[in-house]
Design a protein around this nucleic acid. Sequence first.
DNA 1: ATCGGGTCCTGCCACTGTGG
DNA 2: CCACAGTGGCAGGACCCGAT
Length: 270
Amino acid sequence: MKFSREGEIRWPRKVRTAADAVRFIDAVGYCLLFPVQNLPLPSLYYALARRYPLTWDTYTEKIWHWKDDLGRQRRAFYAKYFKGRGTFISLALLPHFLAMRDSAASPGDHERFYAGGRISHDARAIWQALEQHGPLATLELRHACKMDSKAGNVRFKRAMLELQCLLQVVHFGAEQETAAWASGRFELTARAFPRQVLRAREIAPETARAVIAKKYLHWHPEVLPVRLARLFRWTEAEAAAASAITPARRGYNSPPRNPKTQERSSRRVT
DNA sequence: ATCGGGTCCTGCCACTGTGG
DNA sequence: CCACAGTGGCAGGACCCGAT
């Protein structure tokens, strides 16, 4: 397995307990569960194990449980967010992530999101089931949405990813549904983190981007707007504004770029 | 013998922009 | 106009092992 180390940070404290993990998440603001190639973000795994590559050991086992427990205990937000990979977001920054894309929803907002073309039919069904039944484990949720079959599971996974990338659904513990691996348990963000959702409604998107960028720049001061844009799915103009770097200074630490590249980078990078 | 839980990886295809 | 590179999305494989 190959992993990029570029997003990792020098965190001076040892991470041994769940409380340490929460301190780490609060300090970095947002991080990955496991390191992911081409995704320059710190990972909880590296903070704990301090080494690559990832192997299945006591460290892995520890954070495996933390991802289930921290959300349920409302000590951090955990969902598949960046590139659909396991991501922690601190409680302090969750409102900003929600505000950034107008994602501060109420439990009954599935119709509004569906009508607005923001979620698929399957995602709406999952949202509805969670609204109706409260937190459900994978198999219960699939059953409630009539996605029990193999083909149904593919639709379920895709729709769940969609909802998590929109920050509407959050990991909320785990449940031993079968004798095999434990299933995740899921809840609506609006129900699990109502205070953060309310707070998000008071934050303007550009303010949210600035706070998120400031956090990233604290640990990666040399990052260029184009990298920020790519990471957070902003336009380069939004990234430059968020990191308060003027266009004149934009190429400060980078080699000169040809005009065609600059023209391209003025559009949204995805 | 097959299934299925969650995750990451690889391979494939479609799309886009570049550059000759 | 066309070939090429880069990217993103998606599907399927591997992992493990007990239940069916």
